[in-house]
């Protein structure tokens, strides 16, 4: 068995463990809903717990030194320790380890960075999404996003393994550049932040709808939302995640321009991939603007973050494969 076959084995193992982690995170969401139901049963009028918690938040002028602390206090229904959540995180870490081994082995097998075609880019890009998620977890409790992250990774890795797989091949002269290392790596890292930002914005929208329903005393269906941070907190978190992504994306664009100048003799030529990188940049610039525009902060800007990430996925999955252009590195 050669290194590439070991890499594939490791990648499939990682996918299996991600699937288990996905199950554990899903069980956790179900438990959250159950916890909310029982909390509602004990405090007879369903909305009472909600309003008192909201009151605590409004009057919360006490010193909160950590963001995580603020989040814990922010949820409408406090949710204690959860074994399935811990299992989910542990499995994600294990799967991440296998995933990392897969990427490193592929790199050694090919004798270069493991992101020179669609298959490798998908493998390393998803690895970075999980890495960003795990690093953020050490600072802020975003474990409730576990289902989203592991689910997204499973889908992307599944497509990569089935549709994008190519054998190890040497780098063609067009990709023999230090900018392959910098430009593509930073782009994937930015994608990792955008993915988290997308998830946070999505949950923010759900939470916003739930909070609206609370005002009109209509019961919602997704009960676990009550154990998650408020829409305002989620929106702050999403913003912070997305601006890091935006900065990395700005750098990607510039590094790409420098590389384009070295490779093709012009720093910008409206190649299809350049066009979409530009579109994504403008959408996220719009997102940041929207957040500073009265009447646009909140749900409207959240939609822009979601559209932005959809464009990122489109740029990766559709533009690379189906659009004609100079960035023809999919290897397909």
């Amino acid at each position: 068995m050669n290194l590439n076959e070991l890499s594939i084995l490791s990648l499939y193992s990682a996918m299996a463990v991600y699937a288990l982690a996905f199950i554990a995170f899903s069980v956790d969401l179900a438990k959250r809903s159950a916890a909310v139901s029982s909390a509602e049963a004990t405090t007879a009028p369903g909305v009472a717990g909600e309003s008192s918690a909201a009151g605590a938040v409004a009057g919360g002028t006490t010193t909160l030194t950590r963001i995580s602390a603020r989040i814990a206090n922010d949820a409408a229904t406090p949710y204690g320790r959860s074994s399935s959540l811990r299992i989910g995180v542990s499995l994600t870490v294990l799967a991440w380890g296998l995933h990392l081994v897969a990427a490193v082995l592929r790199g050694i097998a090919a004798d270069r960075v493991p992101w020179a075609n669609m298959y490798e880019f998908a493998m390393t890009g998803t690895l970075l999404i999980v890495t960003v998620f795990l690093i953020v977890l050490t600072r802020t409790d975003l474990r409730f996003l576990g289902t989203f992250v592991t689910g997204l990774i499973l889908i992307l890795l599944g497509i990569a393994a089935v549709q994008f797989y190519v054998e190890v091949a040497p780098l063609p002269p067009a990709l023999q550049s230090v900018w392959l290392v910098i430009h593509v790596f930073v782009a994937s890292l930015g994608t990792g932040f955008f993915a988290l930002g997308f998830a946070l914005s999505f949950v923010q929208l759900l939470q916003f709808r739930r909070e609206e329903r609370v005002d009109t005393a209509k019961p919602g269906r997704l009960k676990f939302l009550k154990t998650l941070p408020s829409a305002a907190t989620l929106e702050n978190l999403a913003y912070r995640t997305n601006i890091i992504g935006f900065i990395l994306w700005t750098f990607t664009l510039m590094a790409g321009s420098i590389w384009a100048e070295r490779a093709w003799g012009r720093y910008w030529g409206w190649d299809t991939k350049e066009v979409w990188t530009f579109i994504i940049w403008v959408i996220y610039a719009g997102y940041i603007h929207a957040r500073a525009t009265r009447g646009w902060r909140g749900s409207r800007s959240a939609w822009l973050a979601i559209i932005g990430f959809a464009a990122v996925m489109f740029n990766f999955g559709i533009v690379n494969v189906f659009f004609k252009g100079l960035h023809a590195y999919s290897g397909l």
Partner: peptide, 15 residues
């Protein structure tokens, strides 16, 4: 904001 979003949309046909 409107012009930014319009710019993003207007760039699409070129791809």
């Amino acid at each position: 904001l409107f012009l930014l979003l319009l710019l993003a949309i207007a760039a699409v046909p070129g791809s």
